[in-house]
Design a protein around this nucleic acid. Sequence first.
DNA 1: TTGCGTGCAAAGGTTTTGCATGGCA
DNA 2: TGCCATGCAAAACCTTTGCACGCAA
Lengths: 141, 141
Amino acid sequence: MKESYKTKQREQILQSFQQRSDEHINADQLSDLLKKEGTTIGTATIYRTLDKLVTQGSLRKFIADAGEKSCYQYIDKEKGCADHYHLKCTECGALIHLECDEVQLLAKHLLASHNFMIDTTRTVIYGTCQTCIQKKEISHE
Amino acid sequence: MKESYKTKQREQILQSFQQRSDEHINADQLSDLLKKEGTTIGTATIYRTLDKLVTQGSLRKFIADAGEKSCYQYIDKEKGCADHYHLKCTECGALIHLECDEVQLLAKHLLASHNFMIDTTRTVIYGTCQTCIQKKEISHE
DNA sequence: TTGCGTGCAAAGGTTTTGCATGGCA
DNA sequence: TGCCATGCAAAACCTTTGCACGCAA
């Protein structure tokens, strides 16, 4: 394991995410947020820090399509997000926390039959939420 | 709906995917494949065609993380859209594509009980693969 | 003939890297 | 002191776009 220093920049970035634990923020927005708070952090540092925080399990990364920016969100370890899944609507961006026993079966199955240990902390299930499904149906009529 | 001409290039691209319906291929690999078969198609055309084929429902797109290339796969409409899932190992980075009926239950359950329509195109399940689980166990002993 | 498709090169946008400097331990 | 972290600018990267020409219908 690599050593890691505690720096002002990393603290501030992590804090920004903690204060907005229900939001998903991209590198650019983060930069703006910090500027408004009086701190300017270089782009390279932002990306490097974000990457470290994801690896270390403090942030979750939402991968974007080409040309779009990837988003990040704070993972609250106290709350035990470990046991629940995250659904994200690609239409409206809503993030749904799903606690459902039946979904846990997926983890068991993957482990038992495919020897794959799922990490619910980092996994995000993308799709279309109820509201947006209805919107689509209406517009097709 | 826009008009669409039938061109040699589009036919060849579609054919390449049909012949490899169990693989997911990126723009670069496709270009190489075609070159080996004696055809050279410009990058722009490849991307434009890929995009059209996705829109038209002939291909499925797997969105990749930054720096990686997005992959595409043929959708066999006869077979009835066998969705497949992506498992990605956070230790070694391996990308596993999983076609498994039992996993399809997840999609059904999410739709039936949570009104959420999963998009397997964008969803990547993160965790630890078999090889890396074993490595960890060994190093902990 | 009409206008979509193609190819080349250049641009676009996000993210990464090189390198010298700064700061934690 | 040792070495990770930072910042700037430049690079790398995949992908898209502009433009002139080619080709399907």
